[in-house]
Amino acid sequence: MVDHATPNLPSRSFDATITFYAALGFEIVFRDAGWLILDRGGLMLEFFPDPGLNPASSSFGSCLRVDDLDAFCTRCRVAGIPEATAGWPRIQPARLEASGMRIAYLLDPDGSLLRLVQNPTT
Rank of each mutant, 00 (worst) to 15 (best):
V2W: 05
H4D: 06
H4S: 15
A5K: 14
T6L: 15
T6C: 14
S11V: 07
S11K: 05
D15Y: 04
D15F: 01
A16E: 14
T17K: 07
I18D: 01
A23T: 01
E27H: 04
I28R: 08
R31I: 02
D32C: 01
G34R: 12
L36G: 06
L36D: 02
I37F: 02
I37W: 00
R40Y: 01
G42A: 03
L43S: 10
M44C: 13
L45I: 10
E46M: 12
F47C: 02
D50F: 03
P51W: 05
G52H: 13
G52T: 11
L53Q: 03
N54G: 10
P55N: 13
F60Y: 08
G61M: 00
G61R: 03
S62Q: 08
C63P: 07
L64H: 06
R65M: 05
D67W: 02
D68Q: 04
D68K: 06
L69G: 07
A71W: 10
A71I: 02
F72E: 01
F72W: 06
F72V: 08
C73N: 10
T74M: 09
R75E: 13
R75N: 09
C76D: 04
R77A: 10
R77W: 15
V78H: 10
G80V: 13
A84G: 09
A84Q: 09
T85D: 13
T85S: 14
T85A: 14
G87W: 06
W88C: 12
P89C: 13
I91Y: 08
Q92R: 12
P93H: 12
A94M: 06
R95D: 07
L96R: 05
L96W: 00
M101P: 01
M101T: 09
R102F: 03
I103N: 02
I103Y: 00
L106H: 08
P109C: 03
D110V: 02
G111E: 11
L113G: 01
R115P: 03
Q118I: 00
N119V: 11
